[in-house]
């Protein structure tokens, strides 16, 4: 989206320009604070149903977002709040959808798992594991059909990576050289089943190898590493060379959904990740190393906090949808 992201700084400077680092920091913090609040509102009964938090995985969507431009499309599963915020959808609209209010992106008819923005080219928010991979391949198909250099970023978890339609999609994308960046967010657990117990493929970045789809394994806890990989993958797709596969090694701190007792992993494992690999703390350290004033970071913290507080206020006070909404948007009229 901005030029600075793709211009490497000369000499021994940081991997990202300071302004871009600040933007990445702000975006990651926005997602983190948003999700913390969502968890809190869920506990208060203001958010219902299923609610899957993105906490821990922020570097993935933020790092890719640095290289997206106007017209690029994205699509993901039900763990979608982070993708929406990075696509530029407002925290107010997303939070109000979570609380099921008329000011939500889907006017309260979608909920946590089903939000979309035509304007921001965000195509959902899909509740069926793996479905977004075939749909996202269609977004890339549309880009190519229209002859643009726009790309589609298609996010899915390692749990979805064994779905049959994922491999059908790889085949179609490779056959038609579709501009599709497949991003496997490998957070190690598909609900409660570890990747070792679910996939015989030990290197998911090679899952497209049969179709010659280039793949790369990336430290998804490090936004600088994600940025570099995203730059390469997106450039590959823009150049018309076909799909690209990124396996992001990441980690979710919270349960699969809010109702996850988390008995399938040791508490120490979670604690260890938070202490040593946290994407926000890692970037903060990098920023400090390159002389970014802590006061500036504090001011970003405060800004984000205010934005989230405003979103929460809005989502709590916005009215519920009118009962007449039951019968709208079933078919396009005319």
């Amino acid at each position: 989206m901005d030029e600075t992201a793709s211009v490497p700084v000369k000499g021994n400077g940081p991997a990202l320009a300071p302004e871009t680092m600040k933007r990445a920091y702000k975006d990651m913090l926005l997602v983190r604070r948003f999700e913390e609040k969502a968890g809190q509102l869920y506990g208060m009964g203001l958010i219902g149903g299923f609610c899957h938090l993105y906490i821990g995985q922020e570097a993935v969507v933020v790092g890719l977002g640095l290289h997206m431009k106007q017209g690029d499309k994205s699509i993901t599963s039900y763990r979608d709040h982070g993708q929406m915020l990075v696509a530029g959808m407002t925290p107010r609209g997303v939070m109000a959808e979570l609380t099921g209010r008329e000011g939500g992106y889907s006017r309260g008819k979608g909920g946590s798992m089903h939000m979309f923005s035509r304007e921001k080219e965000f195509y959902g928010g899909h509740g069926i594991v793996g479905a977004q991979v075939a749909l996202g391949t269609g977004l890339a198909f549309a880009n190519k059909y229209r002859g643009t250099d726009e790309v589609a970023i298609v996010y899915f978890g390692e749990g979805a990576s064994s779905q049959g339609q994922v491999f059908e999609s790889f085949n179609l994308a490779a056959l038609h050289k579709l501009p599709c960046v497949y991003v496997i967010e490998n957070n190690r657990y598909g609900m409660g089943t570890s990747i070792e117990r679910a996939s015989a493929s030990k290197d998911l970045s090679r899952n497209g190898a049969a179709w010659n789809i280039p793949g790369r394994k990336v430290d998804g806890m490090d936004v600088l590493a994600v940025h570099q990989a995203a730059q390469e993958a997106i450039a590959h797709c823009r150049a018309g060379k076909g799909p690209y596969l990124l396996e992001m090694e990441t980690y979710r701190y919270r349960g699969h959904s809010m109702s996850d007792p988390a008995k399938y992993r040791a508490r120490d494992e979670v604690e260890e990740m938070r202490r040593t690999r946290d994407p926000i703390e890692t970037l903060k350290a990098e920023m400090a190393k390159w002389g970014i004033d802590p006061a500036e970071m504090k001011s970003i913290d405060d800004d984000v906090k205010a934005v989230i507080a405003d979103a929460v206020d809005y989502a709590k006070t916005c009215p519920e949808p009118d009962p007449s909404e039951l019968w709208t948007d079933i078919l396009v009229e005319g």
Binding site: T137, E168, L172
Partner: peptide
């Protein structure tokens, strides 16, 4: 290819963009 799940999904994705 003979992959209804994949190509139907791809077509739906394209339709969501207006094709």
């Amino acid at each position: 290819p003979i992959t209804e799940h994949g190509f139907a999904g791809m077509a739906v994705g394209a339709a969501l963009t207006g094709l």
